[in-house]
Simulated scan of single mutants.
Amino acid sequence: MAAGVERVGEVAQPRVRAWGTVLRADTTAGPVWLKAPGPATVFEVPLYRLLATMVPRFVLDPIAIDLQRGWVLLPDGGPTLREQIGDRDLSEVMTRVLPQYAELQLELQPHAEDLLAAGVTDMRPAVMPQRFDEALEVTGRYAETSGDAEAKERHAWIAGQRAEFTARCADLPDRASLDHNDLHTNNILGGPDDSVRFYDWGDSVLAHSFSSMLIPLLALTKLLDVGPDDDQVRRPRDAYLEVFGNPAELVAELDLACWIGKVARTLVWERSLHGDPGEYADAPLETLWSLRMNSWHFPA
């Protein structure tokens, strides 16, 4: 091939999901991974090229990209953080890792238009009232077709929150950057004591930077079985915020960004499933229903 790499083994397909598939092959340069995103997340292919140019120390550098087919060929990035540590020392490890993600976001803040041009969806505060209406359409369809009375009640309650949601969007500063939108230890490559690289950008959106903490903070509470105010959650959160300024002055902004980011997460679920919900059919409604929790919290 043009990169001077030849396959020396059989091709395996370890993951197939509604939102895409990944293939693995051994080559003369070591293992490589071919990712073929689904049609709604194919923007990930040009995005990899853009990130490798703008923030190369934080991402994998693609070996090859096929824009016509929507494929990206990536080198092996080594084991994921989850494979190395499981849930052990999770709070301490994320206290070291999340500031690296904050640095990536700071470096990308001047490049919002480039991210949009690559196909990243706009979820900045100014457009989120419109996105709220789009999310309501998604949950409304599910509530109607499911025939579930509780789903209909939840959808009706959410619809009644539009005015408050719109008002709170206006309170959020435009601190826009790339929101990974699924930032957990299985999407982080590298050792717990080293620099890491962030992987799997198919859920990403352009949003308030702090909304990226929705998934990591939720994961910490669930995997460690602690409350949202536990020190094992606060330490990683504050380490992330310190990259932007004084954590004590930014916590309320983070809570609001994550609360608003639940609408983005709802729409990310919808575009990933693209008509084939399967076991995740109720995920958009459950995500939007969590707006009743007044920050990044989800119900227990």
Rank of each mutant, 00 (worst) to 15 (best):
Q100C: 12
Y142P: 11
L50H: 12
D193T: 11
R24H: 04
F43G: 06
Q130V: 15
L288P: 00
L47R: 08
G202L: 10
L250S: 01
A149V: 14
W33I: 11
A12W: 06
Q130H: 11
L256F: 04
Y280C: 13
D230Y: 02
V97S: 09
R131E: 04
E83W: 09
S209N: 08
T166G: 04
L288G: 00
R88V: 13
M123F: 14
A281R: 14
L214V: 01
A167W: 03
Q105T: 02
P110M: 12
R96V: 05
W269E: 14
F132H: 12
K222W: 05
G30P: 02
V8W: 00
F43A: 11
P37C: 14
S209P: 06
D200K: 09
D122S: 05
V138Y: 06
E279D: 15
P247G: 07
L34M: 15
E137C: 05
R235P: 01
E134D: 15
D225A: 15
F132S: 09
R15P: 01
A149D: 11
P129M: 02
P228A: 08
D171V: 08
E242C: 10
G4S: 04
L291K: 07
P62A: 02
L189I: 14
L218H: 12
I158D: 02
E134K: 11
A52R: 02
W71F: 13
S177L: 05
A252W: 01
V42E: 08
R154P: 02
V11L: 13
L206Y: 01
D182P: 06
E107N: 08
C169N: 07
Y142R: 13
L288V: 01
P173Q: 10
V120D: 09
A300N: 15
H155E: 13
A25N: 03
Q161M: 15
W157P: 03
A159W: 01
T185E: 12
D133V: 15
A2C: 09
M1C: 12
L81N: 01
A300Y: 11
R88F: 13
R17M: 07
D182T: 00
P173T: 10
L60M: 10
T139W: 04
L50D: 04
R15W: 11
D133H: 09
A143S: 07
A248D: 14
D61F: 02
L74D: 04
R235L: 10
L108N: 06
F58K: 06
S91W: 08
S209H: 08
G278F: 03
W157E: 03
L81V: 00
G278K: 10
Y48Q: 11
L254H: 04
T95L: 11
W259D: 10
H155T: 11
